[in-house]
Simulated assay, not measured.
Amino acid sequence: MIEAAPAKVNLHLHVTGRRADGYHLLDSLVVFAGVADAVEAMPANRLALTVAGPEAGVLRAEPDNLVLRAARALAAAAGVPAQAMLGLTKRLPVASGIGGGSADAAAALRALNALWRLGWDEAQLREVALPLGADVPACVASRSCRMGGIGETLSAAPRIPTCGVVLANPRMALATPSVFKARRGGFSTPARLPGAWADAAAMARDLAGLRNDLEEPAIGLCPAIAEVLAALRALPGCLLARMSGSGATCFAVFARPDEAADAAGRLPESWWRWGGGLHGAGAAGV
Rank of each mutant, 00 (worst) to 15 (best):
V136Y: 05
M147R: 01
L59I: 10
A168D: 03
W274T: 01
E215T: 12
T50K: 13
G148I: 11
Q124C: 10
A191E: 00
A129T: 08
R256S: 10
F251N: 01
M243V: 02
K90N: 09
G101T: 05
L47C: 11
N65G: 04
P190H: 03
A264R: 06
A284M: 09
S178I: 07
A248W: 02
C139T: 05
P257G: 03
A234T: 11
E152D: 09
G22Y: 12
N10C: 06
A156P: 03
E216D: 14
R143V: 12
S96D: 08
A56F: 01
V286S: 15
L13E: 07
L232G: 00
G17F: 02
R205K: 14
A241F: 11
M85H: 15
R211N: 05
G100M: 08
G149M: 06
F180M: 03
A191C: 10
F32W: 07
M42R: 15
H24D: 04
V31C: 05
P43V: 12
S178N: 11
L68M: 09
C222D: 01
L235M: 04
A77S: 15
N113P: 14
G164N: 05
C145V: 14
A134G: 06
L13T: 09
A201T: 14
C238Q: 00
N45K: 13
D262M: 09
R110K: 13
V31E: 04
P54K: 12
N212G: 02
A231R: 13
N10D: 12
A261V: 08
A20V: 10
A264W: 10
G151F: 00
I219N: 04
P6R: 01
A230L: 09
A284S: 13
A157P: 14
A95D: 08
V165N: 02
R18V: 13
C222V: 15
A241D: 04
A73M: 07
D121S: 12
L239W: 04
S246Y: 00
W116K: 06
